[in-house]
Design a protein around this nucleic acid. Structure first.
Length: 428
RNA sequence: GGUGGGGUUCCCGAGUGGUCAAAGGGAUCAGACUGUAAAUCUGACGGCUCAGCCUUCGGAGGUUCAAAUCCUCCCCCCACCA
């Protein structure tokens, strides 16, 4: 089965150029393909996961993926300040971020032996000179055409307007494609559906300057069933970096997926066979929850490794109760089968305290605040007043409740805010 | 550069001297119901030494017993014109 069919079947394809020629190109070549990533943060987040998984599928089919970090574009930023993502950042910062990004990507892609590349467009963009750029590249672009691009049209009509810098991103990205084409033999660019205009512009530029046929694929914008952009939560982005977003939280993120999203997410974010995934559509109620556990397990495994996935599963079980994974449910998954009951290690966020400093001395709401379960004392107070604060699964009765000796069993205190947020206090 | 319109609590958006910690909606959080889902209902939603107090309405000053609301200067945004 060709990559293209696989990607199509799993829901990756929004649009593509030259359908037949591309299919042909991919079957007869070890193709090099690229996707651009933003280096403004030291970590990628779930929003980029579709792109990453697509690259992984490419690699699995013997093609060579390139992850292009936009270090050059990051150096420009965007003065309109409308898009948070385009902040000006320093070279050092970009280097730092690149390290983090490479680290994360290496969980999904094999960078050894030239099997995948991580490049930075600063390599060529910072060398550009304005006049030659205008003469050699700018001449190929028609402003008339550019402003017809969906991404620009919206901005042209909106009050926010469009800065010249943003307007130029299309040229720069097309230039990237051209560079990758001539230096790395890369003639396939992929990206989110908002990149369509930029990708097509690149294809044109490649044809005009290198005389080569290039291709493009865009992915759909993944939204949750409730219409929210994938990977955005109340807390902000769902990071792939374990430091910023623990494997346990990551696991929880997937378990909390909407019913209607489970099948789609399994297809996009795991490597489980599609025949198995289709079975999920028959499930409902508690059984569907088990499928969510598999989704969470697999997704966590891919991103953080099997050990962490297992820990997260166990932590989840000890928090929310046992779960039985039947052998027939998504058999391709390596999730341990059988009944999982509360036991074993947990990987719930924890903080250490000196027992003598706490017991009988501190208010419980203070602990909620200090462990970041609540963002202010008023917040903690509210939580208690509304009955959402728990210590070792006992509801906290009043805002002036102290930590008691009886709370400190086994030198641990389990704090809970609402139904899903836990924090463990470890007493020394 | 000119003219006009704006900058309000996470977002949108009311408010034009006291009754304003500031309507309404969204988002979010908690409770109930559930399946760690969705929908629905209820409540909360600046901070604190919490039935009281303190700090907020682009920034800095000023008028007033009293300012988000009036005045001055500054910063920023938008539209049209050049």
């Amino acid at each position: 089965m060709s990559v293209l069919s696989v990607l199509k079947e799993r829901g990756f394809i929004e649009d593509l150029t030259h359908t037949e020629a591309l299919e042909d190109y991919l079957t007869h070549n070890r193709a090099t393909c690229y996707i651009g990533f933003d280096p403004t943060a030291s970590s990628l987040h779930v929003g980029s996961l579709v792109c990453i998984m697509a690259l992984a599928h490419m690699q699995r089919h013997g093609h060579r993926p390139i992850a292009l970090v936009g270090g050059g574009t990051g150096l420009i930023g965007d003065p309109s300040g409308k898009t948070e993502l385009r902040k000006v950042i320093t070279l050092e910062q970009i280097d730092e971020n690149k390290k983090g990004i490479r680290n994360q990507l290496s969980r999904f892609l094999d960078f050894s032996d030239d099997k995948a590349l991580l490049l930075d467009n600063a390599q060529w963009l910072t060398k550009l000179e304005y006049i030659p750029f205008l003469r050699d590249i700018g001449r190929h672009f028609s402003v008339n055409r550019m402003i017809k691009a969906e991404s620009y049209k919206a901005r042209m009509d909106s009050e926010d307007g469009l800065t010249f810098i943003e307007f130029n991103y299309m040229l720069l990205q097309a230039y990237d494609f051209m560079q990758l084409g001539s230096s790395y033999d890369c003639f396939l660019q992929m990206g989110g559906s908002d990149q369509w205009g930029n990708i097509v512009a690149g294809i044109d530029l490649v044809r005009r300057t290198l005389g080569k046929q290039a291709y493009g694929i865009t992915f759909p914008l993944i939204t949750t069933a409730s219409g929210i952009k994938m990977g955005k939560t109340h807390k902000g982005a769902v990071w792939l970096d374990a430091q910023r977003f623990s494997p346990y939280e990551y696991y929880q993120f997937w378990v909390n997926a909407d019913d209607a999203d489970v099948e789609r997410f399994l297809a996009l974010f795991t490597f489980l066979p599609m025949e198995e995934i289709h079975q999920v559509s028959h499930l409902e109620g508690a059984d569907l929850n088990k499928a969510k556990a598999v989704l969470a397990y697999e997704a966590t495994k891919i991103c953080h490794g099997e050990d962490e996935a297992l820990k997260a599963l166990q932590a989840s079980v000890s928090m929310f109760g046992g779960i039985e994974i039947a052998a027939t449910l998504l058999p391709g998954s390596s999730i341990p089968r059988g009944t999982h009951s509360a036991a074993g290690e947990e990987s719930v966020p924890s903080t250490s305290y000196n027992k003598n400093d706490i017991v009988g001395k501190r208010l419980i709401i203070d602990l909620f605040m200090e462990t970041n379960l609540c963002k202010s004392k008023s917040d903690a107070r509210r939580l208690v007043q509304q009955g959402g604060a728990y210590v070792n699964d006992n509801r906290v009765a009043g805002v002036d409740q102290m930590v008691l000796e009886s709370d400190a069993k086994a030198d641990e205190i389990l704090l809970r805010a609402g139904k899903k947020k836990y924090h463990k206090i470890i007493l020394d």
